[in-house]
Design a protein around this nucleic acid. Structure first.
Lengths: 326, 326
DNA sequence: CATAGAAATGCTCGATTTGAGCATTTCTTG
DNA sequence: CAAGAAATGCTCAAATCGAGCATTTCTATG
């Protein structure tokens, strides 16, 4: 297309460097009542694993079709829900910090799948989200990772001058809520980025952060900026389940209400009040009876329910609203 | 970066066609209490106007910096809030429908600015959103555009076979809510896409839709797929103001509560209950007194207030929650 | 200069929604 | 058969929401 600014642009633009490279990357998620999972691949045994990614191929009419096509081809997984996440293009994602390197663009997608059966791809594996971002899991109380992170972040804030220090402290409080004891489950990306800026994740050091002596937050790194992409995906999904019934994309055809609750808890990283969760789900008409029960629950047998697809047509914003933590 | 699928890819990939072209496009918005506005440019007097867009230049470290840079350079506008919207890359956005053409990728950004002073760019102008999407404005009751759209959409649904017909009817009801009288202000993109698929917007005909005899929905077209991008931006902004105080990015430094309400109404396209709106804003602590009043309101003088920046640090999700319409 | 008109503001009230728990029911297991 | 574990049913108070009435305080007008 012709640039709308072409007249002016020709005066100011610089001869393009290397043409940007473009790929599609996918955060493919699955979940059990215990564990939220993401599909990772390891191309180089020496390097940390990363997200599956592939080239943009122009024979597909839409980007999403291109994504579905190569994911299916490579992993034999059938993607359910797919949404575009974000286009990452900051220059520091280039592997080598070659100032002449062009942008390495990556269009990231979030995809949800039901079955967590092993991927057909060699070196691909399902991993627990929280192996990478352990501070995001509050299901068993305050994550121990924060015992390292909190003092390290506070030290980082103190290291700045007066105004910078206050700014940093506010940002820390906003994202981690140490003082107010407020945890906002969706701020996953903001927290990761704060840790990155504070030099508390290995990726930052790799990218040339100064704070070499800073403590490192627990959690496995990933290749390139893939942990950032994962954080983006988790934040997006945590937000989405509150107003869209996407949680069912991760559930089997029939499940118990506790399975559903546990899965929501796994994704959101917080515990919910059982009775209120049930009330919410029933009153929103999100599920319907299958007529069957399961006795494998370890207690009174539970009804098996399934997703009521009709809700997609009824309520403007059906989803699993969550209470605040604390 | 090396593709994680490189081993397999080499077997399956096709020799790339033309390298994709990439540009950044910006939905730059401003608002008055009466009118939500978007900045448009017209490069060709014969063609409908479009959104400002420019090339991706690799000298900027981040995509957002690149965007800010060329927007400032070209329009003299200072962007406040900026967020990435979406990357549009479907092949049908290429001007000519050349099957050999590569993708034309456009990374679209939403930007909010305070002043609606005329842009410095030739052929650039602020336009009312609703010139392009008149069915989105319910402030004065049901938009007349729907008198054309409703029967045309229903005719389109009837034109399909049994299962297709029901599917279409459900989609129409979900997005436009004709029967249930429910209007979900955020579903701007879904509505536009439905009209596009039904062949009710000129862009669809231009792109080769079959339904040449179908009636055309009121509303000015834009160049390429820019009306779709605008719809994406409006939907995003309508959603965002409900849980983030971004509305203040569009307000002057001091304003009355009614100004604020009218601006929210302009963006969301629906009317609000005055007293409840005030209660909400006051109780959330979104504003603070400036101590001054204005007598230009045509009635009892109104207090002038300003945004209370501290709320950014307090509430996890401050914003202007809206009631449902009806 | 009294009055009508237009907003700004203050308050009330019932209907819902939320957050927490208590109490029962109905399985499995030792 | 008793203990333990869940599933389910219900209650209750606090907070929020949706509507509307009543007052106050300006400006514009005859």
């Amino acid at each position: 297309m012709a640039s709308s600014f072409s007249a002016r642009r020709s005066k100011t633009s610089i001869e393009p460097h290397a043409a940007p490279t473009i790929d599609l990357s996918a955060v493919i998620m699955a979940a059990t009542p215990d564990e939220p999972r993401v599909l990772t691949v390891r191309s180089d045994p020496q390097q940390p694993e990363g997200l599956p990614s592939g080239p943009l191929q122009s024979q597909h009419r839409t980007l999403e079709m291109g994504l579905r096509s190569w994911v299916t081809e490579q992993t034999q997984l059938t993607l359910g829900y797919v949404e575009q996440l974000y286009t990452f293009g900051d220059r520091d994602r280039a592997e080598a910090h070659d100032p002449n390197a062009g942008h390495a663009l990556s269009i990231a997608y979030l995809a949800l799948v039901q079955e967590a059966r092993p991927a057909g791809l060699a070196h691909a594996a399902w991993q627990n989200w929280y192996d990478y971002l352990p501070w995001e899991d509050w299901r068993d109380g305050r994550p121990k990772a924060l015992d390292v992170i909190e003092p390290a972040l506070k030290a980082w804030a103190r290291a700045g001058g007066k105004p910078l220090r206050q700014f940093r402290e506010e940002r820390i409080e906003l994202t981690f809520g140490f003082e107010a004891r407020t945890w906002t489950d969706e701020r996953v990306l903001e927290r990761y980025e704060l840790l990155y800026e504070a030099g508390l994740v290995p990726e930052a050091l790799r990218d040339g952060a100064t704070a070499a002596k800073a403590r490192i937050a627990p959690g496995k790194p990933m290749a390139l900026d893939h942990r950032r992409i994962l954080a983006t995906a988790i934040g997006r999904l945590r937000g989405k389940i509150k107003y869209r019934p996407v949680i069912f994309e991760l559930m089997p055809a029939a499940f118990t209400l506790l399975d559903l609750q546990r899965t929501v808890e796994a994704l959101s990283g917080i515990r919910l009040h059982k009775q209120n969760f049930r009330r919410l789900v029933e009153m929103q008409g999100l599920v319907e009876e299958t007529g069957e029960v399961t006795t494998k629950t370890g207690g009174r047998p539970a009804r098996l329910v399934r997703f009521r697809r009709e809700v997609l047509l009824e309520r403007p914003a059906p989803g699993v609203r969550l209470p605040r933590l604390r």
